[in-house]
Write a protein that binds this DNA or RNA. Structure first.
Lengths: 204, 204
DNA sequence: CCAAAACGTTAACAAAAGATAAGAAATTAT
DNA sequence: ATAATTTCTTATCTTTTGTTAACGTTTTGG
């Protein structure tokens, strides 16, 4: 692998981010980083593409991405990931089936990658196996919590309420992402979000 | 624990259901079932309640449940689980924080329970630990795939399309669940679902 | 630096969904 | 068995959203 090209700074950012889930001793870390690689994606280039298997989990050192689907020829953005977050077409990575959507860099994005092959090797590894099982479990459980909230918001909230909640809990999204992508993310059209914003302004 | 009261039939159903994720040898199974308990919930009784921590994962041997939130005094049903599926206020179970919703039996429901305490013990166990880490990972990953599809359907589909998709992929829901619950599940009101059904009938 | 593309707002109209209420049908409970 | 409750449909009206298009502004790329 090409771990040699990963800067110490990037590795240390990654290690800190991982600490939310798992910590490694030095021997483990040394073996672990042998399985990593580094990638820089230019703005608008894709991390993952429809109809292809997504073979990596990325960890964003710098930059941001959007997930989108194409329906009737138009792109519909479903989600974003920023620094210190993971990025993957998770279902495709897990099931090794073709992805149904795209992941595209919103700006130049630097990533540390764990390939599916590396992950499988680590899961079988004497030294790392146990810890990687746990790591995988904790990451998956973390995303389950996020997804649960997101689904609940679609069920129980109006688009306007979802927008207000988003301003409250993740206001940085509005700063970093074009508004029409945010509209899709909220499950509405860009025109509709513009109207909602106007409505709210009047009472603010 | 009270594994003694679990019928062999229920245990064997459970073991078959688990086989989608993990298989146990006899020694493991013997230890594993010591951590299980059995519960029968009467129709309309609750498996999990808002503002309380959900301390169990259930596996449905018989029956069905619905998940719902209460908003402005009205119940909004977000999901269902049936035989051979797990049931839990998953985020609450994982984070050990109060649940934000309810889980209620739609009919008399028989469950095998794994308490959070038992799960933690098994995760620490010499014999079972490794396997339970993997089990937890695979179950969480499975639900991530489900949730990803569900979120995508909210982003990319109209209510009518979601309804048609549901008829296609999980038609049994319409058979077993009151229609106004299904409406909530689709993110719309019962009146709206009734109209959609009428619209579709005309062209069918 | 300039042309092209992308972005956000607004308007006008159509379509869909929400709210409320009423009534029929089915289910449940006593 | 029948009274009560739940469920589904339908109607009316209001609100919201979708659609399309136009316009000005900003950003991007060559």
């Amino acid at each position: 692998m090409n771990s040699s090209v990963i800067s110490n700074e990037a590795l240390s950012i990654f290690r800190r981010g991982l600490a939310n889930f798992i910590t490694f001793d030095e021997a483990e870390w040394t073996e672990f980083i042998l399985h990593l690689s580094y990638k820089v994606i230019k703005k608008k280039d894709h991390f993952s593409v429809k109809d292809k298997i997504c073979n990596d989990i990325g960890f964003i050192i710098n930059g941001s991405v959007r997930y989108y689907h194409v329906k009737d020829g138009t792109e519909i953005t479903g989600y974003f990931s920023f620094e210190n977050e993971f990025v993957s077409s998770y279902k495709s990575y897990l099931t090794q089936q073709a992805s149904t959507g795209y992941i595209q860099a919103l700006e130049q994005t630097d990533l540390i990658l764990i390939s599916r092959k590396s992950m499988d090797l680590m899961l079988e590894s004497r030294l790392l196996g146990y810890k990687m099982e746990r790591f995988g479990r904790l990451v998956a459980e973390y995303y389950i919590c996020c997804y649960e909230d997101r689904i609940a918001s679609f069920i129980t909230k109006t688009p306007e309420e979802r927008y207000l909640k988003m301003l409250e809990t993740e206001p940085e999204i509005m700063q970093r992402v074009p508004q029409h992508y945010v509209a899709n993310f909220l499950g509405i059209t860009p025109v509709s979000l513009s109207r909602i914003r106007k409505r709210i302004l009047i009472y603010a």
